[in-house]
Design a protein around this nucleic acid. Structure first.
Length: 495
RNA sequence: GGUCCUGUAGCCGAGUGGCUAGGCAAAGCUCUGCAAAAGCUUCUACACCGGUUCGAAUCCGGUCGGGACCUCCA
């Protein structure tokens, strides 16, 4: 069964066919680094990290490009005034590039905590000014742009006469126009939907570069067009981002590429849904965004406790990427426990020694396990349905635990099945989903626990329950759970 | 107003017309020196009203509710 991807452009799932067999080019719109990323931003990057990892799992050689927007983003998109970096820089009396540096590092740190793989290339807008100017020149040359006082605008209405501008989100020109304000007297633009490719900078503007049209800075949309073309070519496989980018940013990217190169940039447009809080979208402008930091420390009025980054990642995997996901304390708590249960079973599974069982003594169970495991790929191939894969994994947890406890005989399933189970759990939990144990511990602690377990075992053998209980209770009070297992063994974990 | 998405058991959530995902919570039982963990069992839901169909949570129409986008935002 082949991979199917929901394409925003066609509004249906399509079979994935890469342009170059065996290779995938994927571009994802990254963060604008003028402030901390919030959890909603993180959701998108986690979703695409899973997609990236799964494509690698399938054997593709993937070039994953995710930009850092560090210039040009305007306040209010009125094509006037400061860009966001200059504004914050003035406020904090810093160089714009100090702002950029600070939040870029912060972003990468959070990505790492969430166990996202770094993209293959992470290009910045300021590093590609020349490319953006070139592209603007070409668009002008092709007749889709016009200059007004040193600012270059994209002529949307002209473009729309030749091809549908609102193709990505299925909107008609008239409807789009209805939703926009009238042009005021001081507006330079010809059309209400026109957007800036290059913006003339005022003298006091902190970030500006020379161009054929004077000093200025690039418009927001042109950077992604220029950088995706540079690293992935005029036409590549997947272009992704949050759903909020589809109507404006991605629509404009398509128009720019068409106007410049006469081709739509990507074959598959993927959009991840929003993270909500109490049913409302988490966003910077609404100020209801959770910072990862607040979550990891529990320092937020809506949170009862801190949650490990990996719990947050797991929480997001339980929902399909195209559904909205509501963020709540209860939901996170459920995820925390669920991940622990799943991971405990995974560690148990890894300790199984493979016998040499040719024939399963419980063929029915053997068939069931094979079916559940083989469905992992099937579900992922169906537009990356991580939630369903996890559902199957949880169905396998009782099987694993029962084998451990001797409730299911070791020869119930064949060695081949058990080997497959082990391999797929590893491949999915670690490689594709990028999960790990939520409770961090270190080797020294492990050694100490060995010692305590030894002492407790001795005490129990002597029926010295005062001592054995003391060890267990005191450990419990510092958050370490000691559990007796069948056969006298003991295991432990941290809350 | 336009373009879409959505309404699933206490909570979170998956869901391809027929085979009742899964997690968390709750209850009972088993195991156990006691506990925890684990296992087993129970709680069997699809906003409402029509329609199509042998059969609908799933398709169609309508009603009501929620949300996103159309302004910067992943």
């Amino acid at each position: 069964m082949s991979l199917k991807i929901y394409n925003t452009l066609s509004r249906e799932k399509e079979e994935f066919k890469p342009i170059t067999p065996g290779h995938v080019g994927m571009y994802v719109c990254g963060p604008t680094v003028y402030s901390d990323v919030h959890l909603g931003n993180c959701r998108t990057f986690i979703s695409f990290d899973i997609i990236y990892r799964y494509l690698i799992y399938l054997g593709y050689k993937v070039r994953y490009v995710r930009n850092i927007t560090d210039a040009g983003h305007l306040e209010g998109d009125r094509d006037e005034g400061d860009d966001k970096f200059s504004k914050i820089a003035r406020l904090q009396q810093l160089e714009p590039m100090e702002i950029v540096q600070k939040y870029t590092l912060g972003f990468r740190h959070v990505m790492q905590l969430l166990n996202n793989l770094p993209p293959s290339i992470e290009p910045t807008a300021t590093g590609h000014i020349a490319e953006q100017i070139e592209m603007t020149k070409q668009i002008l040359k092709n007749g889709y742009g016009y200059e007004v006082n040193g600012t270059i605008y994209f002529d949307v209405e002209k473009y729309n006469k030749e091809q549908p501008y609102g193709i990505l989100t299925n909107r008609k020109m008239e409807d789009l126009l209805e939703g926009t304000r009238e042009l005021g007297g001081q507006d330079e633009k010809k059309g209400r939907l026109d957007f800036a490719l290059w913006i003339k900078a005022k003298p006091e503007h902190l970030m500006q570069w020379p161009s054929p049209w004077g000093m200025g800075f690039p418009g927001w949309h042109i950077e992604c067009s220029a950088m995706s073309e540079k690293y992935l070519g005029k036409k590549f496989d997947i272009h992704g981002g949050g759903m909020d980018l589809a109507a404006t940013h991605h629509t404009n990217e398509i128009a720019q590429s068409q106007a410049c190169y006469h081709t739509s940039p990507a074959n598959y447009w993927m959009h991840t849904n929003m993270l909500t809080v109490n049913g409302t979208r988490m966003s910077k402008s609404l100020g209801n965004g959770f910072l990862p930091e607040e979550l990891f420390t529990g320092n937020h009025p809506l949170l009862e406790k801190a949650y490990a980054p990996i719990v947050v990642r797991f929480f997001m995997l339980q929902t399909h990427y195209r559904s909205t996901l509501d963020f709540s304390n209860d939901a996170l708590q459920a995820s925390e426990k669920g991940l622990k249960r799943l991971w405990d079973a995974y560690e148990t599974l890894n300790k199984f020694s493979m016998g040499n069982v040719q024939l399963a003594s419980d063929p029915e169970l053997d068939v069931k396990v094979n079916k559940l495991v083989n469905e992992f790929d099937e579900f992922m191939n169906d537009d990356f349905n991580t939630a369903k894969v996890l559902g199957n994994m949880f169905e396998l947890v009782p099987v694993i635990n029962s084998i451990k406890d001797g409730l299911i005989k070791t020869d119930a399933v064949s060695s081949a099945t058990l080997t497959l189970l082990q391999a797929k759990f590893k491949a999915y939990l670690e490689d594709v989903f990028g999960l790990k144990n939520s409770s961090a511990n270190n080797e020294k602690l492990g050694d100490v626990m060995e010692l305590l377990i030894d002492i407790r075992k001795e005490a129990k053998t002597k029926k010295d329950f005062t001592t054995s209980d003391k060890i267990r209770n005191q450990l419990a009070s510092i958050g370490i759970n000691l559990k007796d297992e069948k056969g006298g063994e003991m295991s432990w974990d941290i809350d």
